[in-house]
Design a binder for these strands. Structure first.
Lengths: 192, 192
DNA sequence: CGAAAATTTGACATGACTCAACTGGAGTGG
DNA sequence: CCACTCCAGTTGAGTCATGTCAAATTTTCG
């Protein structure tokens, strides 16, 4: 098997038959990226979803004022892409940029459709993944409503283990929606 | 057909065969609720998801300090329930309370599983619904990161049409994560 | 009509943003 | 090997939006 990592991931959620695994494997392609390069830039027609084998990426976009906003980080075993653009058949507004040298697996949306048709187990697999993502997004919203910056930073650190050492301060501040200065002060207050 | 409204909704997303529609219909039960009553309270074992035929509800929970936080409103053609509790098999932490006299359709999770097995079209239907919900949650997060209170209030009003006349000020303020006093001032500034 | 709840308004406190300056480390070239 | 530059991170000062608390007003509903 070419890509055992992703097969393991699928098996954690559903029970694929060998032929289901084979079909998925046949649709995957390997992608390598250097730190600082882009997987996706605005205006591109979105054709693929990506599974992170190794590395770390961030997905963000620019608002009308040109400020960037980080939507998610993706590390090992995460899927990343642009659902919104794909489902609504609009050009993507996202940048997806690698923060570390990364290795990914890609699947095209055309093949994903075929996968759904021929191996309905993936219909369930992606439903479960999206449900999980939905729940963790909800946590992010509640966290914003309920907690102050310090508590949200701590929650962030536990939800992406060790990420505070992989991702720069200003990216974390951006994700949390606070200024880098403010996050810096919060981090200092935690050292004591 | 007993419940044409929900059949119409399903057909907006997928192409069910008559037998698929019949199966769904056979699993549904009608629920009526008076304003101010609860569909779900914390600690309950979650057994159903609900489709709103008529009326308006809010889903919220209490944090450690006893403050409430509204997660979503549900009006006509929305599903409401507690995914999180169901998927993770934990007691619900949510309150779901009706803001208006409401009529709902319920389906038990046991029957939902049977539905998935016998009519895989619903696997897709719910995947699409969750994907949509996921995208609109993302919009809520971005909105918080990007916009000030006034802009977020306006966005809220357009995303739930006419809801500002159905839902009290303090519930909207709660949903937006601002104080009722502040929202009141924002609304005044919009009248001029 | 009257009580209770919701909303509005005012006064004050505070957390977070902005802007600017400074610190410290990594990489580069003389 | 040492300056030099660049950039992330830190620190300080002033300002502003929003929260809190209290009181006044309006609306809802029995």
């Amino acid at each position: 098997m070419k890509y055992p990592v992703i097969a393991e991931h699928v098996k954690r959620y559903v029970s694929p038959k060998p032929k289901d695994i084979d079909l998925l494997q046949s649709f995957l392609n390997e992608v390598s990226m250097d730190k600082g390069t882009f997987l996706l830039q605005p205006g591109t027609h979105v054709r693929h979803e990506y599974f992170v084998v190794e590395g770390c990426l961030k997905a963000y976009y620019l608002d009308e004022n040109g400020s960037s906003h980080i939507i998610q980080f993706a590390v090992e075993d995460w899927w990343i892409g642009d659902f919104d653009a794909y489902f609504n058949e609009i050009p993507s507004r996202l940048y997806i940029e690698s923060i570390e040298n990364s290795r990914l697996l890609s699947i095209s949306y055309e093949n994903l459709q075929i996968l759904y048709e021929k191996s309905p187990v993936y219909e369930r697999y992606f439903r479960l993944l999206i449900t999980n993502a939905f729940i963790s997004q909800r946590k992010r919203i509640l966290s914003t409503l309920e907690k102050d910056t310090k508590a949200r930073y701590l929650e962030f650190c536990t939800s992406y283990p060790n990420i505070e050492n992989r991702v720069p301060n200003y990216d974390i501040a951006n994700y949390l929606g606070v200024s880098p200065e403010n996050l810096s002060r919060v981090r200092r207050s935690l050292k004591s």
